[in-house]
Every structure is written in C-alpha cells, then in structure tokens.
Computed example of a mutant assay.
Amino acid sequence: MGIKNFKAPKKAIDKNENRAILVSDFMTKKLITFSEDQTLLSVIDTLISNKISGGPVVNKKGDLVGIISEGDCIKQISESRYYNMPISDKKVSSYMIKNVETIDGSMDIFDAANKFLKSKRRRFPIMKNGNLIGQISQKDILKAALDHKGHDW
C-alpha cells in the first residue's frame, strides 16, 4: 500500500479557539448599587465594607441615573474641609456623575480595554434592552488577560 497523501492529519478545531472574548464573560453581575437619596457617608461605608471603588446609582424604578466613586467622595471630603462644611447630610444625587457612558455586554474585551484607555473611566455599566445587567471594571479586564495568559487571543 502506497502513500495516499503527504498532508498531515487535520487538527480537530476547537470551537472556543477563535471565539471572541466578550465583556459579558467577565462583567460583574451581582452589583452593589446606590440610590440618589443615600448620604455620602453611607456610600463611603459601603465602598469600604465591600472593598469596591464605586458603583452605579439607580432611581426607585431601578433605572441607571449615575455613577458614584471613591474619587467623587474624596473630592467632597476635601471641599467640605476647605469650606468647613460637614458631609453627613450630603446626598449622592448632588455628587454623582450623571453623564454615564455604558457599553454592551457583547462588546469584545479588547474594544472595552481601548474604551477604558480613551475615556479615563474605571468602570462602565452594562446595559441590555434599557436594563442595567452588570458592570465591567478595569480590574475585570486584567482578570480576562490573566485568565487567557495573554497568548490565546
């Protein structure tokens, strides 16, 4: 029996090999959210006790209305010290970022990383059909890179 073919046997194709790495694969789904009428002291306590750096602000209907972060709180602490004004009664609605950029969970993780670099944001809420379904942070992007070891993207 002679050689029929000089080609090597075909390698089985792994269905996940060429699959895009999506934001939805690494986003946080169990969100800690804040309300507009929460005090800054309450937000600071939640940030510290949950070891997070910020989160989405939702209204009573659950609609996304803003983002509050450590930086927003620190800014108010600094200003309150400068003007000798207590922050105990300051509400989130006055200090949150209201112009919220969101991204889609089906976005490729590398496009999300590029968006982080361009926007200087630390987190993006993930929306689907007008509903808040998660959040992706810069740390989540790093977890994705570590998970894939930087060699199979």
Score class of each variant (00 low, 15 high):
126 I>P: 02
111 D>P: 00
64 L>G: 12
17 E>W: 09
98 K>W: 00
31 L>E: 08
83 Y>D: 13
116 F>M: 06
76 Q>M: 10
15 K>N: 02
123 R>A: 15
40 L>P: 02
110 F>M: 14
118 K>R: 15
67 I>R: 02
61 K>F: 08
41 L>W: 03
16 N>S: 13
121 R>L: 03
106 S>E: 14
123 R>W: 05
46 T>R: 10
96 M>N: 05
40 L>K: 02
67 I>T: 05
82 Y>T: 13
31 L>Q: 12
21 I>P: 09
102 T>C: 15
110 F>H: 11
71 G>F: 07
121 R>T: 00
149 K>M: 06
27 M>N: 07
128 K>Q: 14
63 D>P: 00
88 S>Q: 12
49 S>H: 14
55 G>W: 02
46 T>K: 14
46 T>V: 15
100 V>K: 06
71 G>A: 13
25 D>M: 11
41 L>M: 11
54 G>I: 05
43 V>D: 01
106 S>L: 11
80 S>R: 03
142 L>V: 15
12 A>S: 04
114 N>A: 14
131 N>W: 04
77 I>R: 05
152 D>G: 09
18 N>M: 12
107 M>S: 01
25 D>W: 01
105 G>E: 05
52 I>E: 11
14 D>Y: 07
103 I>W: 02
52 I>D: 14
70 E>Y: 02
83 Y>A: 10
75 K>I: 07
133 I>F: 09
140 D>C: 08
